[in-house]
């Protein structure tokens, strides 16, 4: 598991390892040409470059840029993020951009959780990041942004006399899921097709890389936070599932040098009725660690232990500073080292 200082190091120094050079992060109009040139030379996605004049004729692209406040990003770059490598388009595709954007997205999402919830167990952390960055989640976001799809094969487009130019502005891919006839769905798994969710995800990842290319690292970070992290709400309390809470709490207390936890009945009602309620608090010495209520003493005790463990795992510093939010020289890592997960 990374700790704070290591994150700070990663964010500033290792961007080149993620797939693009630092030189690309220069902002301003001069950078756009350099970015396009670089992407053309160094990525796998070969194809014709998209001219700015051609891309600017697409009303779908113009409205998408306005909706996402991306007016400072050239339409040609934006058009490219919408062409997947299965589209069969003659233009350069988004696979290189998407690969880099995926790394950036994962990095900042991990950072967000590790800074805000430093005690989150590893598996829960991985799942939480997955909820934010998996294709399914990104596809949901892309649909909310109003991204339209173009799933015809190059042959079908040729027959319909549709040129590659007129497809710009719509997400071009060949769908792996095809409704052959009512009740029959054909699913193809090959390199020439793509699932809809994956195609949408490559667009968002490529867009993150495009924002990086034209606004720099901080711009990409802000974009990820504003458009992908902040709007999503995940109830962390309910995703933590604990199989043996009372035992785990006892081990935790002994590891942290606290007195062994004791469950005490705090209130009850209708013990001899068919709807009894018990409120149990779990105490370590004088301090109450958690509280739970249930229709049996055992249930209430278990809920109290779960409540105490949730409070432990979901500890959040009052004013957490992300390493990437502060300049490298100013960032002071907090001297906090977590004991890690509890082993029972």
């Amino acid at each position: 598991m990374f700790t704070g200082p290591r994150l700070a190091f990663l964010s500033r120094q290792s961007v080149s390892k993620l797939g693009m050079r630092r030189s690309l992060s220069a902002t301003g109009p001069a950078a756009s040409g350099a970015a396009a040139e670089y992407a053309q030379k160094h990525t796998k996605s070969k194809g014709d470059p998209i001219s700015e004049d051609l891309a600017a004729t697409s009303s779908a692209l113009q409205t998408l840029a306005a909706r996402l406040h991306l007016k400072d990003i050239p339409y040609s770059t934006l058009a490219r993020t919408l062409i997947t490598d299965t589209s069969g388009s003659r233009f350069a595709n988004n696979s290189g951009l998407a690969g880099f954007g995926k790394s950036l997205l994962a990095f900042y999402t991990y950072e967000h959780f590790m800074i805000n919830y430093p005690r989150l167990p590893q598996r829960v952390l991985r799942h939480a990041v997955d909820v934010y960055t998996a294709p399914r989640a990104l596809a949901e976001v892309a649909k909310l942004w109003g991204v339209q799809s173009e799933t015809r094969t190059p042959f079908a487009r040729y027959l319909a006399n549709v040129k590659d130019e007129s497809v710009l502005g719509r997400l071009a891919y060949i769908d792996a899921v095809e409704a052959v006839e009512p009740g029959v769905t054909k699913i193809t798994d090959s390199k020439t097709t793509m699932h809809a969710d994956v195609a949408m995800a490559t667009f968002i990842r490529a867009l993150v890389a495009a924002v990086y290319a034209h606004r720099g690292l901080d711009g990409a970070r802000d974009f990820i936070h504003q458009y992908l992290i902040k709007p999503r709400k995940l109830d962390l309390q309910s995703i933590i599932s604990i199989s043996r809470p009372t035992r785990e709490l006892a081990v935790l207390c002994s590891r942290e040098g606290l007195e062994a936890p004791v469950s005490r009945l705090m209130a009850e009602s209708g013990r001899y009725s068919n709807t009894p309620v018990f409120v149990v608090g779990v105490f370590s010495g004088q301090s109450k660690l958690g509280e739970g209520q249930g229709s049996s003493l055992k249930e209430a005790r278990t809920r109290a232990a779960v409540n105490a463990l949730q409070a432990w795992y979901l500890y959040s510093p009052i004013d957490p500073t992300a390493p990437s939010a502060a300049p490298a020289a100013e960032y002071k890592p907090q001297p906090y080292v977590d004991g890690g997960e509890i082993v029972i």
């Binding site: 799942h127 909820v131 309910s238 995703i239 604990i242 785990e248 795992y313 509890i342």
Partner: peptide
């Protein structure tokens, strides 16, 4: 002992 409950859905708030 601690696992993520994978069925919990997240919501996206525009």
């Amino acid at each position: 002992p601690v696992q993520p409950a994978k069925f919990i859905q997240s919501t996206f708030r525009n």
